[in-house]
Design a protein around this nucleic acid. Structure first.
Lengths: 334, 334
DNA sequence: CTGAAAGCGCTAACAG
DNA sequence: CTGTTAGCGCTTTCAG
């Protein structure tokens, strides 16, 4: 850490520290070009780096943003992080990425930590409903935040969300169009609005086509691969369906394995459609048909909203549209 | 941000700010238990949060660490992040995670950014050789750093690495033991030491068994899925091998696809062994046999080293041992 | 167009 | 065991 300070460069440049501070902050455009230039030059020569602490102490701004994700191991989230990070960096902010591992406890800790760290804003993506503690934490510190990926709070507060119902509908419609009538749906935990909405959309597509989705065909997973595999294996052993919609791609992976072990061919005997379009889904054989969220873009947008809120105090909710990516795991029924 | 400061709590508690500062820092154990208790209580009641800026300004410490990874989309790195983050948090540090997207340019920017941000230390994981600029950047700021995942610097500076040669050897030995003689190896870019070493180990296993690995069977990939797929497809069309070792799991995925499209059965006609053991590898059908790096643990260790360096100025290099995880993608040759 | 001076909230000698 | 005091490096009135 160069110990050279604003004073040093003031001395070298033969001006006052105020002047240096001014050029540092691009202030008071009405400053002699010459002075500015000299100062800039000296700063360059001395390789001056302003001290964030001193700065923050007076401005109360850290130029840091916090991002809490529920599960960094689900490839969906690294994409979000990339988007958020790129946007933040371009706007001259740094991102502290925190992984709550799906534990409310950890989430709350991070919320506190980030406030202590004096971040300027928080982007919170929690797969679960916000705990009361989290809400309190968020409200008590007056720091701006935006929600990501959970629709439930959409009404009250700014955030970015996906139209999950529509996504579910697209998956369902696709299957209907292919002529499937015996279908199942593997959803995430039903207390999560995302999961509920995707299911609702999926059902709507079939209702429109006057096809019934029996209750027994609604399989409740946990958005993870392992449990999905177990449930699917059991289900496929006893039931005969021609298509399954998985509420996220990780669960679709589990279903692939179950089908494989039971000797069920995809897509010949079983069509599968996933949700998310995580990068690794093209590694599956056959490639997975899925509903894409523009994850990277959503990450960028979320930071944009956060910064708007921070800088202009404007709050806004934006809803993204999903797109259906048809690949190889779905097939017309004969 | 509670605007309540050390002064407020001093006044409320009827002590001097120094005293408050002392309890804040657990200093001077010889303080009346009663005073300490009162202060603590008032802090609780007023929900006091010390100001990091003011603190940092005098201590020159931020309690933040930076972590630069080359590619957050490769599931290998989220695991590293998790380990690093958990360790950092337990030691009372926060982590700023930065993704350099495999671009030296971005890496250099982050290096600068992190220094500006006044982090206390940097954990740098760059798949590529350090650029000169990066090196300079690292040396100029006097901030401690540790290297991750690249052996080349091991001698000079503290870091955590994997014994890549050994890992390659394990993969090779496994294939030798299964009776394979016609083999190929898909490596990463050869200017990366990791890739080189894995290849060297692999070759050693075959040399020991007096089996030759022809030059034409060394396929140079880029550690990504797509390119691996293209190369493998071309190669497998023209050549007949019974086993391939992929220098990382992502490339193994690409090879799976190539084999599938060519109608080559895994493992009946082709055995594959990967490297890394990323979580998603169990989603492949058949499950991939691979060489595991204890990624999460390595992340923890790296932070531990960094903190040691930071706190005790001790520098140390540690080398992890890989383990072979035999699953379903390799088979004895008949 | 430029400078002097007053803090921001905290820690760290130095006294008592 | 506790308090006084002098800054840390920067921004920001307020003057000139």
């Amino acid at each position: 850490m160069g110990k050279i300070t604003i004073k040093d460069i003031a001395r070298e440049a033969g001006v006052s520290i105020t002047t240096v501070s001014r050029v540092l902050n691009n202030k008071a455009e009405g400053m002699s070009k010459k002075t500015r230039k000299t100062v800039l030059q000296v700063m360059g020569e001395l390789n001056y780096q302003p001290n964030k602490f001193a700065r923050g102490l007076v401005t109360k701004r850290s130029n840091m943003l916090g991002l809490i994700v529920p599960n960094i191991s689900n490839p969906f989230f690294p994409e979000l992080c990339r988007g958020a990070e790129d946007e933040a960096n371009e706007r001259n902010y740094s991102l502290i990425i925190c992984n709550s591992d799906d534990q409310s406890q950890k989430e709350e800790n991070y919320l506190r930590l980030l406030q202590e760290q004096q971040v300027d804003g928080i982007l919170l993506s929690s797969k679960n409903r916000l705990s009361q503690t989290s809400k309190d934490q968020l409200e008590s510190g007056k720091i701006p935040y935006v929600l990501f990926d959970r629709g439930e709070e959409a009404s009250n507060h700014s955030g970015v969300f996906l139209d999950n119902e529509k996504g579910g509908y697209m998956a369902g419609k696709h299957l209907v169009d292919l002529g499937h009538t015996k279908i199942a749906c593997m959803t995430g935990p039903l207390e999560i609005l995302n999961a509920q909405q995707r299911l609702a959309g999926f059902q709507r597509a079939f209702t429109e086509a006057s096809i019934e989705l029996p209750k027994s065909s609604i399989l409740v997973g946990d958005f993870q691969m392992e449990v999905a595999y177990l449930i699917a294996k059991k289900f496929l052993q006893d039931n005969c369906v021609t298509a399954i919609f998985a509420s996220n791609d990780l669960m679709a992976c589990g279903i692939y394995r179950a089908a494989h072990e039971l000797g069920i061919q995809i897509p010949e005997q079983l069509s599968i459609v996933g949700f998310d379009d995580i990068p690794l889904v093209t590694a599956l054989i056959p490639k997975l048909t899925t509903v894409r969220q523009g994850t990277y873009e959503m990450g960028r947008k979320a930071i944009e909203l956060l910064l708007n809120e921070l800088e202009n105090n404007s709050s806004e909710g934006v809803v993204f549209d999903p797109t259906l990516i048809v690949r190889e795991s779905t097939k017309k029924i004969k």
